[in-house]
Nucleic acid binder design. Structure first.
Lengths: 157, 157
DNA sequence: TGCGAAGGGTTCGAATTTGAACAATCGGTA
DNA sequence: TACCGATTGTTCAAATTCGAACCCTTCGCA
């Protein structure tokens, strides 16, 4: 209940700066290779992995952990670029699906190899398989708990 | 060299979303408890931990992994609020030190308990000590490599 | 001494992000 | 059926972030 130990503080700091540095690198790589931001790549990647290549705005917003309005903005950008299209749900007029277009898929595959290589080079290859496993398990659990505490319908991990 | 395995992909995704969710929560907590953003808290915390409670702009920018101009903006805000002051280095007129003021220190201590509690609740207590140790070591190493690849003078971790 | 390259911060405009309204719709319940 | 609260996504203004251009200073070297 008291202050964090040095070890504990270091773990959190390491998490924070690792993500920050990775994010920075990925942003550069993706802008260069595919002309999109890291956030846009994540959005397209989520859509590509989803059934029918489409997701509700809310799920998507929750999955990439941005605000609702932020997602509206980004989907607007992606729609203008032709990488995504909007479709309203027949059974619920309020609901909007973001759908990955063919062009979106091909743009995604333009950035994917470099992105994967970066993840490998800067994270996967730095850790032992055991460390990687612990990382996935431990942080995965932390995620589940935080998401359970909210009402994020969409599942991810 | 090929695509990432499911396990590898999950590790990276877990890292990303864990940070995103933690960041979000901390932003809320710090705004509520101390009227500042998570980024501002990090800046003040770095200063508090530094000798003489001061750091060069560049070191600080690198440490919190924002851009130079972004830091200029934030230090400007913090200076207006009286939490930080600027001081130029006598031996090098170009260099600027950001210095934590007394008021900055007390504001920091206003947010610190809640911040620590959050780190503990959402991260530390979710993991076993062993997992935490692996996390700190593994990610710490990843950090060192990325920073070594750049010219970030400031050390942190 | 004098020159050119590099370093350190700031400034500026454009892009993005946020949070607080807002309008529209759905669900359950009387 | 009619109503009230909860959901969904958007809009809007303000705050923040980014990158490139810029100015001034320092350093290495002829």
């Amino acid at each position: 209940m008291g202050r964090l130990s040095t070890e504990e503080h270091r773990a959190w700091t390491a998490l924070r700066t690792t993500y920050a540095l990775l994010h920075q690198r990925m942003d550069q790589q993706l802008k260069r290779d595919a002309g999109m931001s890291h956030l846009q790549y994540e959005i397209l990647a989520r859509l590509a992995a989803a059934p029918e290549r489409e997701l509700r705005m809310t799920s998507l917003a929750c999955a990439v952990a941005g605000s609702k309005s932020g997602l509206t903005y980004q989907i607007g950008q992606l729609e203008q670029s032709g990488l995504v299209s909007r479709r309203t749900c027949p059974s619920d007029v309020r609901a909007v699906y973001a759908v990955l277009t063919e062009e979106g898929a091909s743009r995604l595959s333009l950035g994917a190899p470099g992105h994967g290589a970066l993840v490998r080079e800067l994270l996967v290859d730095v850790l032992t398989p055991e460390q990687l496993r612990v990382l996935a398990e431990g942080l995965g659990e932390a995620n589940r708990r935080m998401q359970a505490a909210e009402d994020c319908g969409g599942s991810f991990g």
